[in-house]
């Protein structure tokens, strides 16, 4: 009688362990790498016994990379700051533009609404490289190349469709009658949007914002082409570690740890928020 549950428990435990190992191992390995020197990293066979060092982090934070060929100036902290600035501003702008638009697509039926929504989604279909070349030319002519404003604008290609489609779904899930009830009690359209629709779609807006932030953060190709060194985010900045005297694995690892830290923390925090938002939704009959 009790044998089956025990076996089941063991099997389930093993499966979960395997999954965790699969997903967590790279992160753990990167963290270990980030506190080693290039020599210990490249040891054969690899070993987990080593003297930890923080010189990789030190090099990143001070901006001086010691290599066999001499000292190299890198600007990793600047890249990190650029990532933060670009992602945050893009998501903020995306929310300001996308949330009211999502509401309109969810609630108002107007001519061509589906077509417009689909067009916006289709921005995600085309590979970014396809639009990059014409964009580069336009941006140079408009003076937008290598500006934060220009990058934030281009980032809307990533952020806006995502926000629009996720938030639209959340708005559609709110029973229209809740808004009607508010409106019939003497409130206008805007008050209803602000006081009822926005709070009820809150978890969805947060989730969309988070996802958009991660996508924006991870973007590589737009910034690579459209921005020069001082405007580039970490994804592009990490290329600096591929130096003439070899790849600086330790610094690359430390750079990765630093660059995934914000999104990692955000995801951990919002994961709880997401679950809460989905289970405590407005739609309990």
């Amino acid at each position: 009688m009790h044998a089956t549950p025990t076996i089941e428990r063991i099997l389930r435990g093993t499966a979960i362990a395997l999954v965790c190992l699969f997903f967590m191992f790279p992160i753990a390995w990167i963290m270990l790498m980030s506190i080693q020197t290039n020599e210990t990293i490249l040891r054969v066979p690899p070993s987990v016994v080593f003297a930890p060092t923080f010189e990789n982090y030190q090099a990143l934070i001070t901006g001086k990379l010691e290599t066999a060929a001499g000292t190299l100036e890198i600007n990793f902290m600047r890249n990190l700051w650029n990532s933060l600035l670009l992602s945050t501003s893009s998501v903020a702008l995306g929310l300001v533009l996308g949330v009211p638009a999502a509401y309109a697509f969810a609630r108002l039926k107007f001519r061509g609404s589906e077509d417009i929504a689909f067009t916006l989604l289709s921005f995600r279909f085309a590979p970014p490289l396809l639009v990059l070349l014409p964009l580069t030319i336009y941006f140079q002519q408009l003076g937008l190349a290598n500006t934060y404003g220009g990058l934030i604008w281009v980032y809307q290609l990533i952020v806006l469709p995502l926000i629009l489609w996720i938030v639209r779904g959340y708005f559609e899930d709110i029973p229209a009658d809740i808004e009607y009830a508010y409106r019939i009690a003497g409130h206008g359209f805007w008050a209803t949007f602000r006081r009822i629709a926005l709070p009820l779609a809150g978890p969805g807006i947060a989730a969309a914002g988070l996802l958009a932030f991660i996508f924006a953060w991870n973007n590589f190709v737009f910034a690579l082409v459209l921005a020069s060194a001082d405007k580039q985010p970490v994804t592009v900045g990490a290329l600096a570690f591929v130096t003439a005297s070899g790849i600086q694995y330790g610094q690359v690892a430390a750079g990765i740890v630093l660059s995934i830290a914000p999104t990692f923390a955000l995801a951990l925090y919002a994961q709880r928020y997401l679950v809460e938002g989905l289970s405590l939704g407005a739609v309990k009959g």
């Binding site: 029973p175 009658d177 809740i178 009607y180 508010y182 206008g188 009820l200 407005a282 309990k284 009959g285």
Partner: peptide
Amino acid sequence: LAPVRRNVAMAFEGYSLYPT
């Protein structure tokens, strides 16, 4: 006229209480 201007009260079939 918009609903807000009609001065009617309504009880909804789906209740539609403000969840917050």
